[in-house]
Structure formats: structure tokens, C-alpha cells
Amino acid sequence: MEIKSNESNSKIEQLRREYAREELLEENVSKDPVDQFATWFEQALQSEVVEPNAMSLATAGSDGNPSVRIVLLKGFDKDGFRFFSNYQSRKGKELDVNPNASLCFFWPELERQVRLEGSVEKISREESEEYFHKRPRLSQIGAWASNQSEEVISREELEERFQKLKKKYEDNAIPVPEYWGGYLLKPSSMEFWQGRRGRLHDRLIYVNEANEWTIKRLAP
């Protein structure tokens, strides 16, 4: 049965969840946002959040038009937040011309979000190769089989290419494609969001000013 748009919109308008699990106060957070992220990430792991390392990555090209997609965080420390991709994908091309991006983690089980903004740079080839060889073998083949973001004539064509490469490397180590590797986002700001009752959410943002982190509270 076809659902009319106005009926669907009515159901959407009625979707509502009251947030009341936790609070986020200045006196209870770390002075360093990466330490605070580590605390929240560990709590997400302990709470069995589904793919806690899944994050939205927003980029924009020279035309200013934004694009966003889900990627996976593969490591973080004081230097920044790491993820991997095809350098020739849309995100890769946009980062070439505009090396600024934003990340967003959403952990609904904990009623939390974390938003990061900063500059992005490629990591070393050695580090990219080290991670590539830790990936499942089929994922390594997939990196060769997929010209990410390019048009594909059919699913069959993609599968055929994958099977040929699988046979080619059947008894051999799989090299790292030149067009594949890692990125490091170096945050200039990090915002921590905790859902609260009545939509009076807690928002604390860390801003890097003269190489020091300053904590500010934002209105929800």
C-alpha cells in the first residue's frame, strides 16, 4: 500500500525521544579533548554501541558544495584522528583541493554526539602499508577491484573484476594500491554533546587557541 507523503510526514513529526541518561558539566570533563574523547569512546565500547568507530565525514570541494558519508575511525591520539580511503574517490579529490573536514560520531545508546573540525593531511606511506596488510584479504582485493566513486556499468562487472584479482593474487601477497592510504584529521575544535530533558542539551566545545584548549559552553 502506498503511503501518502502527508501521512508519512505526520508520523515523522510524532517521532520524539526524551533524553535523560547523563549530564555534561565543565567540572567533570578532561582539560584535553582527546582525553575526553578517549573516556567517552571507552564507555561506548563497554556499552556495546554498534560500530562506535563509525563516523560521518563531511568534505567540500572547490565549488563549496558539501558531501558527507560514513567512514570508520581507525585510530586516534594527540596528533589526530585516522581513517583510510581511496585517494581518487570523491572525498579524496575534495580533500586535495580543500584539506578541511568535519567528523561526527553519534552514539544513541548513550545519547551522545562528538563533532570535530580541522585540517586533514595524508599519513606516511609506511603507515598506510602497515594498516593495509592488517585488513582482511578480501578487503585488500576490494581496494584493487573498486574504482571508488566512479560509475560502474553493472554489479556483474564489479564482481567479475573482483574474482579475476582474487585469482591473480591467490598465492601472493597483495600490494598496496598507489591510490589508497590513510588520512589524519588534526582537530581545531571538538564539541561534546549530551542529550538532556526538554531539549536543553549540554554542549561543551573545546577550541584550540594559541596551541591551548579552551572550553566553552554552547546553547543547545
Rank of each mutant, 00 (worst) to 15 (best):
E42G: 05
E127K: 13
G75S: 01
M55S: 09
Q148S: 12
E130N: 10
H133D: 03
V152E: 13
F41I: 11
Y87P: 10
Q46F: 02
S30I: 02
C104E: 05
K91D: 04
D35I: 13
L110G: 00
N100W: 10
E121D: 01
S149I: 06
S67F: 12
E129Q: 15
V34C: 01
R115C: 11
E150C: 06
F162L: 12
K122T: 10
S146V: 13
F83S: 04
K134C: 13
R82L: 15
T39D: 14
R125W: 03
E26F: 11
V120Y: 04
K164P: 05
E26A: 11
C104V: 15
Y131N: 10
A54N: 10
L73P: 10
V68L: 13
S119D: 08
G80W: 03
D35A: 14
G61M: 04
K167E: 07
K78N: 14
H133I: 09
E126W: 02
F106V: 13
K31W: 07
E26P: 03
C104Q: 12
E94H: 08
G92N: 05
A143C: 07
R137D: 11
P66G: 01
K74P: 09
S89I: 00
V68W: 07
T59K: 09
D96K: 14
S139W: 04
E127M: 06
D63T: 14
S89N: 01
V49Q: 03
F41H: 09
Y131V: 08
A60M: 12
E157K: 08
K164L: 14
K78Q: 15
S119W: 05
L57F: 05
E22L: 09
G64A: 01
